[in-house]
């Protein structure tokens, strides 16, 4: 269970998150929606532990995130950032292997288990065939999937098979910069990864931010609607994504909001 309690973050005088509390049960699939500047990405960064909140705390199974060792957290929580740019020309396999960082000592070299983890992760995201390619030559959709593979390799438990805790995957707008086909593919991929993990007995917990109402309601079992750094609504997609909520949160008329939802709840 991932829990956020009264998170407050300010950049300067402007509060970006204002006493945000939420609970993400193990194995759930949570979508965070909200207008630009509502604090989605900031919330995800705080949940990932890369940004310290000004007030409030994040707990993982009851333990404070800030008190945990960075590598311990990394074996449990993986993040797929929005920006998938890499500074140097690594191969796809090397990018997947970067996920093994928290499983290796300072001077340790990847062993067969790490290669198997990277291989399986690439396979799961349909990018195994690209393993020897240069990452920088891939398309946006392929890059996105390779970065997801790297995160999956990071969460791979084969070196600690006794750990039955639910791994967490945080994705920041995983479909934002993708064309229609890749949007559908990535959505299906996240859905499938979640289903497979439930079948395997270690259900994956997924938290993602998105602007895509259809994606959120199709994939997520819970939706959180953020507005001005506060939780405006929280619950099942059908309950949260209403004409009234969208009209008020996004500041649009009900006439405009209604058609947006016609496809979502079809």
């Amino acid at each position: 269970m991932l829990r956020a309690i009264d998170l407050t973050v300010s950049f300067g005088a402007q509060p970006v998150l204002d006493r945000v509390s939420l609970a993400v049960p193990a194995g759930s699939l949570v979508g965070i929606l909200g207008p630009n500047g509502s604090g989605k990405t900031t919330l995800l960064r705080v949940l990932a532990g890369t940004l310290a909140p000004d007030a409030g705390r994040v707990t993982l199974d009851g333990r404070d995130l800030t008190g945990l060792d960075r590598r311990t957290v990394a074996r449990r929580v993986a993040v797929v950032p929005q920006d998938t740019h890499l500074a140097f020309d690594y191969s796809v396999l090397e990018v997947a292997l970067m996920g093994r960082y928290p499983h290796l000592g300072s001077f340790e070299i990847e062993g067969p288990a790490d290669f198997a983890a990277a291989r399986d992760a690439l396979d799961a995201t349909g990018t195994l065939g690209l393993a020897q390619r240069a990452y920088q030559t891939l398309s946006g959709g392929e890059k996105q999937r390779v970065i997801i593979a790297s995160a999956l390799a990071q969460l791979d438990r084969r070196k600690s098979p006794d750990d039955r805790s639910s791994p967490l995957l945080l994705l920041d707008e995983p479909t934002a910069s993708l064309d229609l086909r890749y949007q559908v593919e990535v959505a299906a991929l996240i859905d499938r990864l979640h289903d497979d993990s439930v079948t395997a007995g270690t259900p994956l917990t997924v938290v993602l931010t998105t602007h895509d109402l259809h994606f959120a309601s199709a994939v997520c079992d819970t939706v959180i609607l953020l507005a001005d750094g506060q939780v405006a609504a929280h619950g099942a997609p059908a309950e949260v994504l209403t004409v009234e909520a969208l009209a008020s949160v996004y500041g649009i008329s009900r006439d405009l909001a209604a058609p947006l939802l016609s496809r979502v709840h079809a």
Binding site: R45, A48, G49, T50, R70, R71, V73, A74, R75, V77, A78, V79, P81, D83, H85, L86, A87, F88, Y90, E94, M98, G99, Y101, P102, Q154, L170
Partner: peptide, 15 residues
């Protein structure tokens, strides 16, 4: 190596 993903992403990898 991991820092080439960016500082934030590297931190989430355990760096």
């Amino acid at each position: 190596n991991v820092l080439s993903l960016g500082a934030d992403a590297a931190a989430t990898r355990g760096v």
